Computed example of a mutant assay.
Amino acid sequence: MDHTRRLLEIMARLRDPQTGCLWDLKQDFRSLLPYTLEEAFEVADAIERGDTDDLRDELGDLLFQVVFQSRVAEEQGLFDFEQVAQGIADKLTRRHPHVFGDVVFDDEAAFKRAWEQAKLDERHAKAGKAAASVLDGIGAALPALVRAEKLQRRAARFGFDWPEAEPVFAKVHEELDELREAHAEGDQAHIEEEVGDLLFVVVNLARHLGVSPEAALRAANAKFSRRFQHIEQCLAEQGKALEGTPLEELDALWDQAKARERS
């Protein structure tokens, strides 16, 4: 059975004005956005946990969001799912001339340059002008950490980058000093600006060290949750409440959790 066609038919029934689901009928591009982002992050979570059964389910949920958005667009006469699929198929064919054509690249670096040039040409064509920025196409709605990395990677491909990690370490220290100065001044707007600068350069350092800042922070979040839950469990076993427990005791339990993980 063609399950893609079945999925499209299910979506059409859910949006049927007479017999469809009231909740599905109320949705539009904007209202669906949070669900689309949530499903993308749940795909990432399944991958990080190595749960392939869950990954299959989450990919299905993400695909449903694509089908849903496409159906809304079809109802407005904009485009349909077939055109979405056609667009990505054409794009992949166009960007891989060494696979679907007779172009030969000398090495991976040459392929990457051609890939970026193809993307730039597409952005120029879409913008209708030759002066489009090389940063065009990096979604403003992306999570800030992800967008920072993408902006830096895009600029780096055109030569705007430090050649190695060492000067980035120095830049981190420089931004931290500027944040201390802003804190001493007590100007909250300036503090916020400097915090942003510090986060941006830390993303740059992660990139130079070959680390995904998003993945690293997700791992740090998970680690914090594990250790904090250890504190909660220990206190519960002692009949104590988290609130009101001295910080020194909490720190000792935190160190205990760290020691357990390392062992």
Score class of each variant (00 low, 15 high):
residue 215 A to C: 06
residue 122 E to W: 03
residue 188 Q to G: 04
residue 250 L to N: 08
residue 88 I to A: 07
residue 8 L to I: 08
residue 121 D to W: 01
residue 98 H to W: 08
residue 145 L to A: 12
residue 207 R to F: 13
residue 177 D to P: 06
residue 113 R to A: 13
residue 139 G to A: 15
residue 66 V to L: 14
residue 63 L to H: 05
residue 85 A to H: 07
residue 194 E to Q: 11
residue 211 V to L: 10
residue 155 A to Y: 00
residue 43 V to D: 02
residue 124 H to R: 14
residue 12 A to S: 12
residue 58 E to L: 09
residue 82 E to T: 01
residue 114 A to H: 01
residue 49 R to D: 14
residue 113 R to E: 08
residue 208 H to S: 04
residue 245 T to K: 03
residue 217 L to R: 04
residue 209 L to F: 15
residue 161 D to A: 15
residue 122 E to Q: 05
residue 157 R to E: 10
residue 171 K to D: 02
residue 208 H to T: 02
residue 57 D to S: 14
residue 166 E to V: 15
residue 104 V to L: 10
residue 258 K to Q: 12
residue 90 D to V: 03
residue 230 H to A: 05
residue 108 E to K: 01
residue 250 L to W: 08
residue 204 N to M: 14
residue 69 Q to I: 11
residue 39 E to W: 05
residue 97 P to H: 06
residue 207 R to K: 03
residue 49 R to H: 13
residue 8 L to K: 14
residue 200 F to H: 04
residue 115 W to I: 06
residue 260 R to K: 14
residue 63 L to S: 11
residue 238 Q to M: 12
residue 181 E to V: 05
residue 222 A to T: 13
residue 6 R to V: 03
residue 129 K to G: 00
residue 66 V to M: 13
residue 47 I to Q: 07
residue 11 M to V: 00
residue 153 R to M: 09
residue 247 L to C: 07
residue 148 A to M: 11
residue 22 L to F: 01
residue 133 S to Q: 11
residue 7 L to N: 12
residue 28 D to L: 14
residue 116 E to M: 01
residue 17 P to Y: 01
residue 150 K to Y: 09
residue 243 E to T: 13
residue 148 A to D: 11
residue 232 E to V: 10
residue 95 R to S: 02
residue 171 K to N: 10
residue 86 Q to L: 12
residue 170 A to I: 00
residue 61 D to M: 06
residue 9 E to G: 05
residue 133 S to W: 09
residue 70 S to W: 05
residue 32 L to R: 14
residue 219 A to N: 04
residue 170 A to H: 14
residue 240 K to S: 04
residue 86 Q to K: 15
residue 262 R to A: 05
